[in-house]
Simulated scan of single mutants.
Amino acid sequence: MAAKQQFSVTLPPDMAEVVEEKLRRGEYDSASELMSEGVQAQLDRDASLETWLRDVVVPGHAEYLADPSRAVPAEELLARIKARRAAGR
């Protein structure tokens, strides 16, 4: 089994209540298990953001730098987004 490190965590009352409720309902065996899952979710989110930045944002910026004339003004882009949202309703 991997070595573990102990931490002392202080939570605001509303967050502590969530932890206690999840333990009462049996969703987690311990606060440590819940905290571990929370940290893992944060790591997953960070990795996802890093992937998006690397695979979408950086190439898109490079494409813009290569040919700025193909850029879409922010107002037009916002109008497109609003139109897609309206069409999806």
Rank of each mutant, 00 (worst) to 15 (best):
M1Y: 04
M1G: 12
A3E: 10
K4W: 03
Q5P: 00
Q6D: 06
S8V: 15
V9S: 06
L11E: 05
L11S: 03
L11H: 13
D14W: 09
M15L: 09
M15A: 15
V18G: 09
V19C: 04
K22Q: 15
K22G: 09
K22I: 07
L23F: 02
L23E: 11
L23Y: 13
R24S: 09
R25E: 10
D29R: 12
S30P: 00
A31Y: 08
S32N: 13
S32R: 05
E33C: 05
E33A: 06
E33W: 03
L34F: 01
L34T: 04
S36R: 07
E37F: 02
E37Q: 12
G38E: 11
Q42P: 01
L43Q: 05
L43N: 05
D44N: 13
L49M: 11
T51I: 10
T51M: 10
L53C: 04
L53P: 07
R54G: 01
D55L: 10
D55H: 10
V57W: 02
V57F: 02
V58S: 12
G60K: 01
H61S: 10
E63H: 06
L65R: 12
A66G: 05
P68Q: 12
P68A: 14
S69I: 09
S69C: 02
S69L: 13
R70F: 00
A71R: 13
P73L: 07
A74K: 05
E76S: 03
L77R: 12
L78F: 03
L78M: 11
R80E: 15
R80C: 00
I81T: 06
R85M: 03
A86C: 00
A86I: 02
A86W: 01
A86R: 07
A86V: 11
A87L: 01
G88F: 07
